[in-house]
Design a protein around this nucleic acid. Structure first.
Lengths: 343, 343
DNA sequence: GTCCCCATCCAAAGCGCTTTGGGTATGATT
DNA sequence: AATCATACCCAAAGCGCTTTGGATGGGGAC
């Protein structure tokens, strides 16, 4: 069923039917009702493509997911973020278009999306330090919104981010307050902007208490369980091993716990762990009482909100860039305790 | 830059330019070369929408991701599957359109995709027993391919699945061979088709050795870490507690290990675990030697292949449904060992 | 009765592409 | 020289929608 057929069925012109369906005022209430009921009955929905052609809009938002070609790693938070964003799109009548792309030919993808007019805007995932994508998108005049921030960008842009710096500063201070002095940081890849900010928060806290920063206690890499395990194991092997760990993700923290328990040590007693928790639906941090003490911020909620911010930008390209900085909440769980006494 | 402008730039008709770009024979090699170079230079790409309108194709595949409204749970394998499928689409010039939808109004979404002509076909995720979606898609005449199978479907359809039954039978037999008699099953939700098949495999193995099936050792639920932990803890509390566990996912298995170690027991000695491993990129089962003994099958590879199967169907709707049944490989890791002697 | 103004509705153009159904040389064939 | 393929190219229609720029008719004001 298309517009033409529907209008014939109703004995009206395509114009009138279109206007009735799109809420234009030049249609009597009676006619509108009749049209809407017929559309319902015949299950008529305008073709997105034809509508897009006619209006010049795509009614779609692109998500370009970089998959690091080296590690073949799909960011685990991606599913939840997308779920959040998807809710917003569904409500607003937009489609979500996904492009999976290994990070060396991302530029092609963005240019393609632009020249094919496939989307009205894009969400930038996993911003890196001095991210190339922002100037590119500016150049392409493609509306975009960033999940996170990209330090080093000269022009303003719309973003939503967790206050990673303050979260990690707070986490580190929490451990310091418990008397820990040797605190390790298991962080994401250093090219990632969030990792940089987290490290800054961690360092600020230490420096604030006059504790020297020890590179031997800082590791960064792809945040997998294995990475958390290996780095923890290695650091516990060092002399002057850490008594506490700040981890960048729950998955890493699980790995860290494994290393700790493998040694026969007890988490929260011999070694404390505090982690950032993205509140992923399939990886909840315990039930009632959290397993891990954590700084927490829902990535799904971030998806919902950032998608809406982008749609606002698309609707009114002239509006100034919007920013949202979410503060993570600190949840105290069973993975932290006072620093063990030295004997 | 659009076709018209490009053709003017070249002093050719739109027809010729279009044909040159689409590989039709009625164009001289010289002209084609000239056109292609110009297209490159001006970064011209035909508008997907216009092309779709003209050809009647959408050049897009839909993925409808059900999010159980009760649990707000996004399937963790989804990211990797999508990444695999995305590779295929990129290679074949298709877009991937994602709809996140809570599972009670899925039907609306499919009808919408159809009547809006938004996609050429869909991938069905997470098939359930007697899944409503298959008859619906048949009725809508929408090409589709299923990741998994839906027992109870009367009409044939294209699917790709892991042989869940044989994988779990093998896993259970492996434990039986180690002398375990009390073997628990931590399974996915029973409405899910895969969970049903896994249970069948598990039960077949037990029955094959003349061991009675004990409902007290079988649990099913959303496969989270917490679920794995709680069920394991509860079952270890029972008298005549299990000495081995078959788990449906690595995430569950992590929870199970937590419960085991919390009790001061040792995994692989006091209690053995064998799990199914979807080879998720962010949750690898150890490094060199697997942590968990596991039946393994890459969900990303599944995505790649199933996407291709669907595209084949779209290209030739008349072709008979295709089936691929993958056999999981059994990888022996450190989580299994001989059954502890009874004292 | 005439005029004007709304309220309704419509015909047709246009969005950017593909594809049908030709047209025009050019060179070979008779 | 007339004919015929062949190679190459083009004008225009059509995909399903929105939107511009009227047309029509009925009711109120005068």
């Amino acid at each position: 069923m298309n517009l033409k057929e529907l209008s014939q069925e109703l004995g009206l012109s395509q114009t009138t039917v279109s206007r009735a369906l799109n809420g234009y005022p030049e249609v009597s209430a009676a006619t509108r009702k009749r049209v809407e009921e017929a559309a319902q009955a015949f299950n008529y929905r305008p073709s997105t493509r034809a509508k897009g052609l006619a209006t010049g809009q795509a009614l779609a938002i692109g998500h370009v997911i970089p998959v690091s070609s080296k590690h073949e790693m799909v960011n685990p938070i991606f599913g939840d973020f997308i779920a959040g964003a998807g809710e917003t799109y569904a409500r607003q009548g937009y489609e979500m278009i996904l492009s999976i792309v290994d990070d060396d030919n991302e530029e092609q993808i963005y240019r393609g999306l632009k020249s094919r007019r496939a989307v009205d805007g894009v969400i930038v995932h996993g911003p890196r330090m001095d991210d190339d994508r922002l100037p590119l998108l500016h150049e392409l005049q493609m509306p975009f919104a960033v999940h996170g921030r990209a330090s080093g960008s000269t022009t303003p842009y719309t973003w939503l981010d967790v206050n990673n710096r303050s979260a990690f500063e707070r986490a580190t201070n929490f451990l310091l307050d418990l008397g820990h002095q040797r605190i390790a940081l298991i962080n994401g890849l250093e090219v990632m902007d969030f990792a940089h900010r987290r490290r800054t928060g961690y360092e600020d806290a230490l420096t604030g208490r006059g504790i020297a920063i020890d590179p031997a206690l800082m590791r960064s890499g792809e945040m997998t369980e294995v990475f958390g395990y290996q780095t923890t194991r290695d650091m516990l092997d060092q002399d002057d091993a850490p008594t506490a760990i700040v981890a960048s993700s729950l998955i890493c923290a699980l790995g860290a716990r494994r290393a700790i328990e493998e040694r026969g040590l007890v988490m929260g007693k011999d070694v404390s762990i505090i982690t950032h928790d993205d509140a992923l639906s399939y990886l909840q941090n315990g039930d009632e009482i959290p397993i891990f003490t954590a700084t927490r911020s829902s990535v799904r909620e971030a998806g919902r909100r950032l998608a809406m911010m982008l749609l606002d930008t698309v609707a009114d390209p002239g509006r100034p860039p919007q920013h949202v900085l979410l503060e993570a909440e600190l949840m105290v769980g069973g993975s932290t305790g006072p620093a063990p006494r030295k004997d």
